[in-house]
Amino acid sequence: MKKIEAKQIYKNFQDLQVLKGIDLEVGEGEVVAVIGPSGSGKSTLLRCLNKLETINSGTIIIDGETLVSTTAAGQVQYAPGNESIRIATKMGMVFQQFNLFPHMTVLENLIEAPVHVQKRPVAEATRDAEALLQKVGLLEKRDVYPRRLSGGQQQRVAIARALAMHPDIMLFDEPTSSLDPELTGEVLKTMRNLAEENMTMVVVTHEMGFAKEVARKVIFMADGIVQEQGTPVEIFEHPHNERLQAFLKSILK
């Protein structure tokens, strides 16, 4: 079954058309990489999927449940309040800027939402969080405040925090772009492990190595349009679209 089905997504900010009819399908356990020049609408696409932005037209179905649809008359209809939150939070999100809660320790960051949103017992949420910290290799940092961590460590905590909600899908918006080059490896490795556990993932990234090796499907966006999509081999070895060819040339320099 499809985990994400987005059809004909249109999004504009006032007069600025940012998404111009995007289609995106992600199957269960699939890793989809989204690449493209900056300003092409990649972040906006991710943010529309989990309703951080509302769309102007189109349909988004998450795990078989309709988050938003558009009538023939062009009326955009979101699932009612609580429903749309429930559907949107099937997706965990990892941001370029980590966005950890600075006034909470690593452990507190992880159990905050499980305890206060999902109403799980603190002891259980804590056990769960410790297992996740172990997985991302940061268990010994459980009582440390985020500011004491390196960027790479912060991002791994952010990944663990999203996973603590047991999401079906993980969205990554340039998770390594604000890291020093020597720290990207540890974050990419964490994401790779996640992919091997068959997590469904949509990853906006400039890490072409990661896209090549981990993604099942690569989507190239430019100007708010999916210009070309295919397997990593198709996209990186046999690109057809001129914009894609130019883009690949520019980043390989």
Binding site: T89, M91, Q97, N99, E112, A113, R161, A162
Partner: peptide, 13 residues
Amino acid sequence: PVGQYEAARTLGM
């Protein structure tokens, strides 16, 4: 930062 609100929102708060 607006990212704090967004992180909270994606966690269902």
